[in-house]
């Protein structure tokens, strides 16, 4: 049996709150440069608080949704220094021998709100040049 814990590091000011942006389908680049490091686009808000995302030559109108069930963003805890254990493992009296100790997961952030862009993107027609993704 594998057992590990999910913990939230106790920091001053509480756990960071992140935002989720939900887009339909996959993001692709025009060239094959891959996604990392690239600019995605601009996020505007109307004065009424409605989010608008401009990606390449697309306009996406979305809305802010408060999640009924928040998401926890989990990351694996970095390996602890287990050097002391190596000598102990020679000991024959291992308790609960069937249990495998896995590294714990830490809650890096909590997500309570997401920006959802469900509608079909509208194209920006009169783009002056080839610019943009």
């Amino acid at each position: 049996m594998v057992q590990f814990a999910i913990r939230m590091p106790q920091t001053e000011g509480g756990c960071p709150e992140w935002t989720m942006v939900e887009l339909q389908g996959e993001l692709e680049t025009r060239d094959s440069s891959g996604l990392p490091g690239n600019r995605l686009g601009e996020l505007h808000f109307t004065k009424g608080g409605q989010p608008i995302l401009l990606i390449g030559h697309h306009v996406l109108h979305g809305k802010v949704v408060e999640l009924e069930k928040p998401f926890a963003v989990l990351v694996k805890e970095k390996e602890k220094d287990n050097k002391d254990d190596s000598t102990e493992s020679m000991d024959t009296s291992v308790s609960a021998a069937d249990t495998e100790k896995c590294s714990d997961y830490l809650v890096k952030a909590v997500i309570r709100n997401k920006l959802v862009f469900k509608n079909r993107p509208r194209p920006i027609i009169n783009l002056p040049n080839k610019r943009g993704h």
């Binding site: 942006v21 996604l35 990392p36 490091g37 600019r39 995605l40 505007h44 998401f71 926890a72 890096k108």
Partner: peptide, 22 residues
């Protein structure tokens, strides 16, 4: 305006999303 960039290290950022109740 917020200009959104994809992290250079996106590939190394291994995260799992877990839906929880409040």
């Amino acid at each position: 305006v917020q200009s959104l960039y994809l992290s250079e290290d996106m590939g190394d950022h291994e995260v799992r999303l877990l839906e929880l109740d409040s």
